[in-house]
């Protein structure tokens, strides 16, 4: 399997605190990957670096077969390359309707002139309806996103991520605030998506990770502590020390 994303020994520090310390990681073209770790392990900072929000002090982030370096690119450029992100706190445009939120996220031309002259096509409408059905918001399309419940906002954001149709999905704590049934639905969705693309899930919740049945990377103090199946990493003495030792 070819590599989609290769993080090559990146480091970053804030005011002397090393948030990421010589971290290296590869993500293949397709499949699920879970990243776990205690608070302050550098999970969010890792995503910030990959998506271009934070610039690492050193190291490279290589993308695709050409090995394009993402460091220094703008967030929007990286997103256009096919890197989608769902945030920990649901971040949708609360003043706009569910339909508008999904419409904006749809994979379409992004240059300013095309956006200026864009019209919503029938294909777009069908896609929005399909996505809305998938995330259970079909009958809420005309409502403002701000009126939705927390869980619905989570769903909407997942829907927006799917609408972007990215090559790599970075999903930060997708299951927070969801019921058991919804969690199962989420797991299904992510696993289905991972058949055609790479999906990286950052999670706290071991149960959810177990259900994903995928390779797990454990981060601690900004570097990789262990990698492998969930059973493998939970058997690792270092991981036990970090998670349970204190």
């Amino acid at each position: 399997m070819t590599t989609l994303l290769e993080v090559d020994s990146i480091s970053v520090s804030f005011d002397g605190f090393k948030a990421i310390n010589n971290l290296s990681l590869t993500i293949p073209e397709t499949g699920l990957r879970a990243i776990i770790g205690p608070n302050g392990a550098g999970k969010t900072t890792f995503m910030d670096i990959v998506t271009g929000k934070t610039r690492p002090d050193s190291g490279r982030v290589l993308w695709g077969q050409g090995g394009m370096d993402l460091v220094g690119m703008s967030e929007s450029r990286i997103a256009r390359l096919g890197l989608g992100r769902k945030f920990q706190r649901p971040t949708v445009f609360e003043a706009q309707t569910v339909a508008e939120n999904l419409d904006m996220a749809l994979r379409n031309a992004r240059n300013p002139l095309a956006v200026l002259l864009a019209r919503r096509t029938d294909g777009d409408r069908a896609r929005i309806a399909a996505l809305a059905e998938e995330i259970g918001l079909l009958h809420h399309l005309g409502r403002r996103a701000g009126e939705l419940s927390h869980g619905q906002k989570q769903w909407l954001e997942i829907g927006m991520l799917l609408a972007q149709d990215p090559r790599l999905m970075l999903v930060d704590e997708p299951a927070a605030g969801m019921t058991v049934a919804e969690r199962e639905h989420t797991t299904d969705l992510l696993r289905r998506a991972a058949r055609t693309r790479a999906v990286v899930v950052v999670e706290h919740d071991m149960e959810f990770v177990r259900r994903l049945e995928c390779r797990v990377t454990v981060l601690h103090e900004g570097r990789v502590l262990a990698e492998g199946s969930l059973d493998h990493v939970t058997g690792n003495q270092d991981v036990i020390d970090v998670y349970l030792g204190r």
Partner: peptide, 25 residues
């Protein structure tokens, strides 16, 4: 109006998020 209007208002409300959708803010 339309998608361009959506994007403009989205920039007002959260321009960082618009960037992550791939739009040139």
């Amino acid at each position: 109006s339309g998608r361009r209007g959506s994007v403009i208002r989205a920039i007002r409300d959260d321009e960082a998020r618009v960037r992550f959708l791939g739009y040139g803010v």
